[in-house]
């Protein structure tokens, strides 16, 4: 097999490289900047140009990091590697691997629905397709994020009319940029948690600029009125958050699809907004790949494998990796 799972991560023996390895290795190809895929300690990183600022911001400026553009090929010991838009977060890529006519695609994390900012997922034909399955059950049906953003803005305006601040919990890499891009024409009264601001600053070296003011120790939180505050989920319930006076909190996550999870979290609003695929998107992606062999990783892998076998008569199987089975905290 061209690609196997070793104790370090996905491994291509022919090229002697790893993809999104979870243990330190000599050479790592990285699909995207979320911390369960981009770990510290590798001697060499290869990623998309827009992932490099994230890696440097998070893993340190001293890392050895080479970049490619989308659809640009790179040959390592006769194996052809190319990166293709995954639609997940800025810089995210599916990695296509071809050797002697056999083609694999490692999707990393991906989504098909448009968020108005992240380059759209491009289907890549292959023989072997590796997909995650975080939301691989038919109860997960997502609206396009672009539609969710309108609801989010409406809710912010409603809170403003009640003299309340609005705290939106979303990942600092991906969702934060997509939301801020949507708000590019309404730059006032938007504040950013340091984790979000750090990434935005990092992206500026590639020419991306986002609205919003960094919250620092000098920021007068008490004087904020009707503000929108973007923060990572880990900020929820911390003393940092409690200083914003009267506010309502929303969580942006695919998990918000379920009423029980929404209520358990104790936020006022749950926006069903994910950077992952829902069930029908996964099916669409699998079919677009035209792959005969599908390997299903983190999530509802057992159920999704059985579904693919029964519904599409594919050679589907579970592939165990150590990537997070969730839209996790990634700070």
């Amino acid at each position: 097999m061209l690609i196997t799972v070793s104790e370090n991560g996905w491994y291509c023996a022919q090229a002697d490289v790893y993809i999104d390895p979870w243990k330190p290795v000599p050479r790592a190809l990285i699909t995207h900047g979320h911390s369960d895929h981009a770990r510290p300690g590798h001697q060499y990183y290869l990623c998309h140009v827009d992932t490099k600022p994230v890696l440097k911001a998070r893993l340190g400026p001293e890392i050895v990091c080479e970049t490619v553009q989308y659809n640009e090929s790179k040959y390592i010991n006769g194996v052809q590697f190319s990166f293709h838009p995954a639609g997940h977060v800025l810089g995210s890529a599916q990695i296509r691997i071809e050797y002697k006519g056999e083609i694999w695609v490692i999707t990393g994390d991906y989504k098909l629905l448009p968020d108005g900012f992240t380059p759209l997922f491009e289907p890549v034909k292959c023989h072997h397709f590796i997909t995650e399955s975080t939301f691989a059950l038919p109860i997960y049906k997502f609206k396009a994020p672009t539609l969710i953003f309108d609801e989010l803005v409406q809710w912010w305006q409603h809170n403003q009319s009640q003299n309340l601040n609005t705290v939106v919990l979303c990942y600092s890499l991906g969702k934060a940029q997509a939301i801020l891009h949507h708000l590019r024409d309404h730059p006032n009264n938007i504040y950013l948690h340091g984790a979000v601001a750090n990434l935005n600053d990092a992206f500026s070296e590639n020419g991306y600029h986002f609205v919003g003011e960094r919250i620092s120790s000098d920021t007068n939180k008490e004087s904020m009125k009707g503000a929108l505050i973007l923060a990572p989920p880990s900020a929820f319930g911390t003393p940092w958050m409690r200083k914003f006076g009267d506010y309502e909190v929303a969580m942006c996550s695919g998990w918000m699809q379920l009423r029980g999870q929404r209520r358990r979290l104790g936020v006022e609003k749950g926006f069903v907004y994910s950077d992952h695929c829902d069930f029908s998107s996964l099916n669409e992606a699998v079919q677009l790949s035209q792959a005969e062999n599908v390997y299903v990783t983190h999530g509802y892998e057992t159920q999704y494998v059985q579904w693919l076998r029964e519904q599409y008569h594919l050679n589907a199987q579970v592939m165990k990796t150590q990537h997070d089975n969730a839209e996790q905290e990634d700070e």
Partner: peptide, 16 residues
């Protein structure tokens, strides 16, 4: 358009 077993699996997760 799903088999009953997949419906049941979904029910386990949604819990309602």
């Amino acid at each position: 358009g799903i088999p009953l077993w997949l419906f049941e699996e979904s029910y386990f997760v949604a819990g309602d």
